Simulated scan of single mutants.
Amino acid sequence: MDEMQLADGAPSADRWVKAVSYALRQLARLPKGRVLISDTSITLEGASPDYGSFDALMAARRAPPEGFTLARFLVEPPQVSPFLWAATLIGDTLKLTGVAPSEEAGRGIVEAARSVLPGITVADDTKLASGGPPADAWVNAANFALAQLAKLREGRAELSGTRITLSGEASDSSAYVTVRTAAQAPPPGIQLDVSALRPPLISPYVFAVRRDGEGVTVSGFFPDLATQAAVRALILNLYPEARLNDVSAVGAGAPAGLSETLPKLIAQMARLETAELRIVDGQVQLSGAALHPAAVGQVTANVRKALPRDFTSEISIERAPPGTPESDQECAREVEQILAHMPLLFEGHSVRLSAQSAPTLDRIVYAVQRCPATRVDVLGVPEGNG
């Protein structure tokens, strides 16, 4: 339908005809659109059906007719679902792929990447697309994803809408914990999945526990946060009166079976008055002083039995020197203090002491040996299980 009218004041006829021809060619690429020529300014509006049409329109946008400018380009990119974007960090290169909701959002993310990863080469292969979350929500999620990716040695952050999936190896143990903590409380409207995040690879893999007069010190690495928490709880249970100094971290590269073996070794270590357990890869060293003569052989045997097949052990346990003689009253008070912190436990429906009571029994025997005239009665109080 032609509703044009003749009028004066237009640019030269040949240039105007070229501009109209240019505008109609772009309009033909849109299933529904609008083009407006005002003096020497062109406005193009619509929604692109596919990337072939959109790329052609973007190329035309950069080359308007001579004497004219494309003042407003309001063409929506193709709609995609799911709305995916990814940032992959390998070596000194960060590659951005997928789709962004706008040119401004895409440029902003490239600048954000250069800011959080200084010195890194950013290769931007993203395209524009519609059908995703609002641009500001998408930008917030992509910025949050980049902030977490910056804490990895190498890895990938995938963004689907505003849900982030992070995978790769953390740069260090502190970064690993920081990212996992961030996943528990991400910004509003954002989800962060870190199930594929790996702790840093440690070599050699070292773990150590030392018990002395100052308390219990844990250092080195755990295979995962769950093992770290479980061992910490066990130590607090075995040494309720001791001060715990935990300077351990989480790291990958642990020898197979370490998570299952650590509680068994630490339970045996609790039978020693002073002790140090050190594990380097699969080599176990245990030294200390036993309070009871029988504990020397029992601890040695139990430690070796607990080790996985590929582990080796070096065990050096001495007998603790006898303590200073005490009066009956002093002896009784010491035994009461031991039992207050480490009660004796019996096996269910039995008068047999449980294996977990061995450290308590060792300490009681050691105490009463310093007051041989004292009589000791052991009484059990039945619980609901008998």
Rank of each mutant, 00 (worst) to 15 (best):
Q5T: 12
D8H: 08
D14R: 10
R15D: 14
W16R: 12
V17P: 01
S21K: 10
L24W: 12
T40C: 09
G46C: 05
A47Y: 00
S48D: 04
S48N: 06
Y51Q: 10
M58N: 09
A59E: 15
P65G: 07
F73C: 06
P78M: 00
S81Y: 07
S81C: 04
L84H: 11
L84V: 12
L94H: 04
V99F: 11
P101K: 04
S102V: 00
G106S: 13
G108K: 10
V116I: 09
D124Y: 07
L128V: 03
L128E: 05
S130E: 08
A137G: 11
V139L: 12
A141F: 02
N143L: 12
A145K: 01
A147E: 14
Q148V: 01
L152N: 05
L159A: 01
Y176S: 03
T178I: 06
R180Q: 06
T181N: 14
V194E: 04
S195D: 11
V209R: 01
G215P: 10
G220P: 04
P223N: 07
D224G: 02
A229Y: 03
A229P: 02
A233L: 11
I235C: 07
I235S: 05
E241M: 13
E241Y: 11
L244D: 05
V250Q: 02
A256K: 12
G257S: 05
T261P: 06
L262C: 03
Q268S: 07
A275N: 03
L277D: 03
Q283F: 06
N302C: 00
K305V: 04
L307R: 07
L307C: 09
D310C: 00
S316R: 13
R333P: 00
R333E: 12
V335L: 11
V335I: 15
I338A: 04
A340W: 10
L344Y: 01
L345H: 14
R352T: 15
D362C: 11
A373Q: 13
D377R: 09
D377H: 09
G380N: 07
P382G: 02
E383Y: 09
G384P: 06
N385W: 08
